[in-house]
Structures are given as C-alpha cells and as structure tokens.
Amino acid sequence: MSISTTLPASQYSNYQNKVARSRATSEPVWARWTLIAIVLLFLTLFLIVPLAAVFTEALRKGFDTYITALTDPDALSSIKLTLIAAAIAVPLNLVFGVAAAWAIAKFEFRGKSILITLIDLPFAVSPVIAGLIYVLIFGLQGWFGSTLLDHDIKVVFAIPGIVLATIFVTFPFVARELIPLMQAQGKEEEEAGLVLGASGWQILWRITLPNVKWGLLYGVILTNARAMGEFGAVSVVSGHIRGLTNTLPLHVEILYNEYNYAAAFAVASLLAILALVTLLLKSFVEWKVARDAQIDEKS
C-alpha cells in the first residue's frame, strides 16, 4: 500500500515533459468547465466543508472558551503525551527506514520482495488490530502479563503501550519513501566515495543521506502526522485515563462523548492545524524536489 506515502514518481522525472496541449487534444470549453465544477463540488462536500466545520465549531462559543479548552490541564497533558509518543516513534522509525532502505536499495539478496511486502504489513492492518496485538502480548492475560505485573511494569493502559502502537502504525512511512528514491539513485556515488577512501559511515552521512534529504524529510513529516493523529490503535491500548494516558485524538473523543462539542472541536482544531502544516510542508518538499529535478535536466 505504498501509494499513500511515496512522492509521485513524476515529481522526480519528466517534470518538463508537460507539453503544452494543442487544440486537437483538448476538450471543448463547456466540457472542461463542467468537469472542473463537478470535481470542485465533490471536493467541497468531502474535504473543504468538513475542514471548515472544525474551525467554525471550535470558535462557536467564542475565543475565550476556545482558549480555555486548550489550556485545560487534561488537554495540556494530552498534548504532552502526544508529543512524547511522536518523539519516540519518529526517530526509531527513521533509523529503521534508513537501514531498511540501505539494505534493499543498495544490495541484491534473496527474499527482497518478500521483505518489502512485510514492511508494508502495518499499512494493511486495521489500527484496532494493531492495538489488539500489543494487548495480547503485554496485557494482564497476555504472554508477558504476569511477568510485567510481578515487576510492577505497566505497558498496556500506560505510556509504553501507546508508544508501541504508534510505532506500529507509522512503521513503514520512512522506509517506503526512501526505498524507491535510493533505488533510483543507484550506487555510483557511493562507489565513488568508496574509491576515494571514505568509510561506510562517511558514505552514509556525507553522500547517501544528503542525496535523499527531501525524501527523508517527507517521510518524517508523514510519520509525525500519523503518530500525532493516530486514534484506533492508541484507543485500544490507552485505557482512556484522563490526564494520564490520553493523547490528543483520544481527548477529542472523550470531550465529544461528553457532549462538550466546543471543547472537542477546539482540541480537534489543533490537530487540523497540524494536518494543514503537514500538507504545506509536503507541498514545499515536492516543490523543492521538482525544482532540483529541473536544474538537473536543464544541464
């Protein structure tokens, strides 16, 4: 399920191939505008109106209520927990992504396509099941349940469980982003570094990573967005303890179920802003990549 994350291949190549279309291969003006209108209507109904609703509902009871909802101690502690989970999950999956991409893109070995499919697995698993499997292992009746209890370590219904679930659902993003990119770049530059006397780590730091920096950033942005926004998986392992094991999305749910709509949407608006910033950064990275590709092609 790679499509969700990878930069469209066209961003890297063929960027200038968009030939100005001639008369013979374009539609009549009325058809063109009808199609545009249908698409805009569809996207308005499904994207723009819901997005606008988040902010409208958040501010319905005035700005003061909005601020109060965000500065509530429970809200603040959920923000903190969300940041902690992302701060652990993102670096770990980043390191994994780089290692996996290095092995897969730069070497040939048997079972490579199976490995790539396995890395994709978390995308195919329902978030609810992602939470469930950690409950099965670390929960009270789970594999390690009694051992953990003996040592007074809580995983499920505590922060470690939330972190694990977050790592699981964001597992493939960086790897999926880097693998095609590093495959496309080949091995010549790394070999050149080797001939010039660089060590493996020097090659990684000075040649490979700078070459994929935008793809890397893109993967990190997506990982972060998903890590901060994950709901289903975290919901299963969190136990919903207010002020302790609630992440931002879970806090939204609690407020909503208490019919405290204004506060729910106020907190939700924070996450919506995060989503918009993510989209902005994503567009910026795509623009950067396209520009670099153009410079490459010009010469």
Partner: peptide, 20 residues
C-alpha cells in the same frame, strides 16, 4: 579493499556528488 588500493576511478556518468 577498495579504499586501500589507492586507485582513482572515473565513472561513466561521473558519479559526482550532486549536493556538493
């Protein structure tokens, strides 16, 4: 090892480091 051979290698497509 390659690093110890003290050879200079000019690649077909030059393999210049794009970001440097």
């Amino acid at each position: 090892k390659v690093r110890e051979r003290e050879v200079g290698f000019v690649f077909q497509h030059y393999a210049l480091f794009r970001h440097m």
